[in-house]
Design a protein around this nucleic acid. Structure first.
Lengths: 113, 113
DNA sequence: TTCGCATATACCCATAACATTATATATCAC
DNA sequence: GTGATATATAATGTTATGGGTATATGCGAA
């Protein structure tokens, strides 16, 4: 870990939509399309955000058929996980975060993802 | 606290020089000129970085004569302090951080600040 | 193979961020 | 008041970032 990596890690989290993605994924893994409709952004935009988060290992992905599931990097010793924990726990009361979590739960109930 | 503030708070920390300033100030308060020589940047550049940090209340300042002392916002309940604590403690082993701390301590010994 | 769906990448544009130079403000000494 | 020092702000150029459209890739079904 060096200064550049720390800076990049903070920077990749310093974006409204990526913060919402991180918060949403703290609930459970999601496919790209779910995230598109959740944060109301086009698919390329979401793919790019996810690529940014993936490059810094904030999230990891797995392909299943033609779907790609994204989840948080849950390695408990990683700085990524530490920062995500800080964000998710410290700011869980943020209205958007609560709304998004609720939406993710509902979406999960409505259709198998 | 809203999403925008969280984003701005993360962003203001997501810069090499501002990270070094935060780490240096975790030791003790410093005047602008000290920071200029520490991070080897021009005075306007440092002033701007400090203004950014000040706007987000990551640091606070006090004027004494024609010197302006900067220190970390040490309100223990503030998100600012929480994030700074995370950065300073979690990444204290970073080479630049250790070098800067050493330099700050030496500088403090050499001349009264 | 071809089609259709999900996702990723390329390209372009608009805006934001950083560094530098020059200038302005503030305070002290005189 | 003037001059010197410390800091802040303004103006400018360059680079980085985020969003959109179009296109490419990957995979399953038939």
């Amino acid at each position: 870990m060096n200064l550049k990596t720390l800076r990049q890690l903070l920077k990749v989290c310093a974006d409204d939509k990526r913060l919402r993605i991180i918060n949403a994924l703290s609930n459970r893994e999601l496919v790209v399309k779910d995230i598109c409709s959740l944060i109301k952004s086009t698919q390329p935009t979401v793919s790019k955000h996810l690529a940014n988060l993936r490059m810094l290992r904030v999230v990891v992905d797995r392909r299943e058929g033609n779907l790609v599931y994204y989840r948080l990097n849950n390695n408990p010793d990683s700085p990524q996980r530490q920062l995500v924990d800080f964000i998710v726990s410290q700011f869980s009361q943020l209205v958007v975060f609560q709304e998004d979590k609720k939406e993710v739960r509902n979406r999960g109930r409505r259709k198998k993802i």
